[in-house]
Design a protein around this nucleic acid. Structure first.
Lengths: 352, 352
DNA sequence: ATGAAAGCGCTAACAC
DNA sequence: GTGTTAGCGCTTTCAT
């Protein structure tokens, strides 16, 4: 075999097999067009002995199809997204698609450039957990004829895309109900900004539970960090959690909070860490519950009580719908896929 | 703007701008070929008003170049690889490359099919943490004219690729030395199989440290799980750690081990979890040290003493070398990049 | 069942 | 500085 084996074309194969280019294409592309067994065999022989590898660029250009689905998540740091990816990857590959996975690094600009590149590469399917406030980029992808599946998005025109989400309203409500059932009446809600619909839903669920039990709600019960700053080293969300803890500490005694609801596990980790550094004991002095149940939540100190969000399953199911819609060539837009959460009781919430 | 805006070609732009196709290509492809300011402006106008998007497939096919570098890791589950990816991604995008990130899911077969697909897509650069015992697939990629950067590999012909690794010999030695300095003389080495060079290096480092202090080594000191079984749900490596803990428990009393060296943090997590379930207290009854310092190791109970491996930095530097070699079109093969570890003392090792 | 030829969208000689 | 044209590797009519 020669040095550079990858410039072998179907023309070369045709020559070696003594057939036409068309015949070679027909057998090598897996077409169902009839080719005699003899020729087919000769082509296969020639291809293999020449070390032929299909040039997908030629194929994709000609057929205007490709075996890719683009995937964009905010960050590889949060295991929630990592789980999501694992689900997507599994389902995509089972259906002969390759996922093209990128992270926007929580930057709308990067997210846009990623989407633009996907368009330029003529990828037809996109699964995205968008952090962009503007739907322009996604709209652009859509206008290109592409299919889109949105995770937990703010996107208004839900009928133009496949919507996949965790049911945060119910989850938020269930978490609050659990806290209340354990005797808590004064619960602080700690979160990064409410610019994502999913966070607003969680908050709404929490409010619902309070209202249900006749517990008054005050805007002062919710504590946020003002903006999504950059935490280049370490975990952005843990950093945010630490800042949230500092704010919490400022009002804690006065407000007599007995429990914290944190918007996700990673943020809860930061809160716990900072609180413990400040000498407050969990759950003895404050209880904490959060959302996700990433794989480390059973191991930290104290083991975290949290709402399990089946990220892997969500990714898998969402991808199934998308791929199905591409295969059948009928859009499944407007569909909403929602997976539910489940309470996992560990040791971070105390009964009072 | 029409419905499907993505079938606009440079031909359409040329027509709208009243110029030739070549001129359009010259301005839109960022060529340095001279074009008059007036025409350039007209082309840009036309392109933008038509919603033109470069078709990269056409470009890539014609130029036989592309803006991608393939990345293959064993799993998205282990934060070590996730960190590696973050470093790669950052460096790649800073140099106008897009990383195509895949996981082999620890399957040699999947790894091979991933590499094959990269070849078919005519990607020129590959960064891989291979789990395949055979170098055939990588060789194939190489024979295609591609550049390869290998992470922690077993690959024999190091002069054909860029080698990037963490210095596990030194790290293994340093970890053992620390344990010894804390009074430990009977140290068990718990690991997944030694089919990866990196694990053998770590073991060698440990042996070196023992020899140094005149502490006898016995093969019975190393405990492994027989094969890399499949752990579909949950973390494969934590599962392996739990199994390792069970084996350890069988011989612990008799062998009077006072400390464990675990091959990485995730495995240490599993060991700790299982040991604690079995009622053994860490570090009071057994100490444990491991390798990686993934972001959760400070949070678990007890906080884990571990050798910090700068995965992010490794990814970044390795990618830099690869991208540089592609840009300058001179191979940098044979280069070995090695990053060192640093001891992070927390609370999982007791002084005796 | 087979082959010739057109053309997917682009770039790069080459002529002017 | 501009335009014409060949051709990257492939699939797919269209003849035969």
């Amino acid at each position: 075999m020669t040095n550079n084996t990858s410039n072998v074309t179907i023309g070369d194969v045709a020559k070696a097999a003594g057939t036409s280019i068309s015949t070679v294409s027909r057998v090598l592309s897996g077409s169902d067009y009839p080719v005699s067994a003899a020729k087919r065999e000769r082509v296969l022989q020639a291809a293999s002995s020449l070390g032929y590898e299909t040039n997908l660029l030629g194929r994709m250009l000609k057929t205007n199809t490709n075996p890719y689905v683009g995937v964009i998540i905010p960050s590889f740091q949060n295991p929630f997204y990592t789980q999501l990816i694992i689900g997507i990857e599994k389902e995509a590959m089972a259906n002969n698609y390759f996922p093209l996975i990128f992270s926007s690094q929580r930057s709308p600009a990067i997210e846009r450039s990623l989407i633009k590149n996907l368009i330029k590469s003529r990828v037809k399917g996109l699964m995205i957990s968008s952090i962009d406030d503007s739907p322009a980029a996604v709209d652009h992808f859509l206008s290109t004829g592409g299919r889109v599946c949105l995770f937990e998005s703010n996107y208004a025109e839900t009928e133009k895309v496949i919507n996949a989400k965790t049911d945060m309203l119910t989850a938020g409500r269930a978490a609050a109900e659990y806290l209340i059932s354990q005797g808590h009446r004064s619960i602080a809600f700690l979160s990064t900004p409410f610019n994502r619909a999913t966070r607003r839903m969680t908050l709404d669920g929490y409010k619902l539970a309070l209202a249900d039990k006749g517990i008054p709600f005050s805007d002062d019960d919710v504590i946020t960090v003002p903006y999504e700053f950059d935490a280049d080293s370490g975990l952005y969300e843990m950093e945010a959690g630490r800042k949230l803890a500092d704010r919490f500490l400022e009002v804690w005694r006065e407000r007599r909070f007995t429990a914290i609801m944190a918007i996700n596990d990673l943020i809860a980790y930061g809160i716990i860490q900072r609180l413990q550094e400040s000498g407050v004991s969990i759950p003895d002095q404050v209880s904490i519950i959060s959302f996700d149940n990433i794989p480390y939540s059973a191991l930290i100190n104290p083991p975290l009580t949290t709402m399990d969000m089946p990220a892997r399953l969500l990714g898998q199911r969402a991808c199934h719908i998308l791929v199905d819609s591409m295969a059948k060539d009928e859009d499944h837009n407007g569909i909403t896929l929602s997976v539910g959460a489940e309470l996992v009781v560990r040791s971070s919430v105390r009964t009072i």
